[in-house]
Amino acid sequence: MAAQEQTDGPPPRQPIFREVWGDVTVAIAMLAVAAAFYFGADAIETPQATEIGPRAYPKACSLALAIAAAALLAGAIVRVTKSELGETIAFPRFGAVAIAALITGVVAVTLEDLGFNLVIGVWVLVMCLLGGVRSPLMLVALCGGYLLFAKVVFQLLLKTPLP
């Protein structure tokens, strides 16, 4: 959508990636997904002997996905041979986004073990730092504010237990 429009002035350590290589990557990834689902279908245990069993649909869909991905790959290869590499795909502030993705992943595996307050509190803190909030007062206010908000809305109002 619109967010990636404003990316002039690339920061120093940003990977440079041309559009066509993006297409190649996604085409290969999708071919891999299609292959995994196509061959994975044979592993579905089913005693059913009918023609249209649980395997037919994933096989058909993954075949179609493979064809579409192959078409994308072919188009990309044609463009590479013509050296039409396309625009650069920008990854502005790549480091910050990568760290954000990483700590968000950590939330997903530690939420139930370490408890909501600790995990989300730390997450909010790191995200604020990545997002450019520097004032300690603001950091504390945002962490505390969100945890309080979550307590009130989710636990008191909606009665959903938080870990």
Partner: peptide
């Protein structure tokens, strides 16, 4: 923007958990 991103993100993680009361849904969202 940094603050909005954080607050929206925190809300998403909490919402994902609350949608199913399950850590797995958070993993799916991520």
């Amino acid at each position: 923007r940094g603050v909005v991103a954080t607050m929206v993100g925190a809300l998403c993680l909490t919402g994902a958990y609350a949608s199913d009361n399950d850590e797995f849904s958070v993993a799916v969202a991520v």
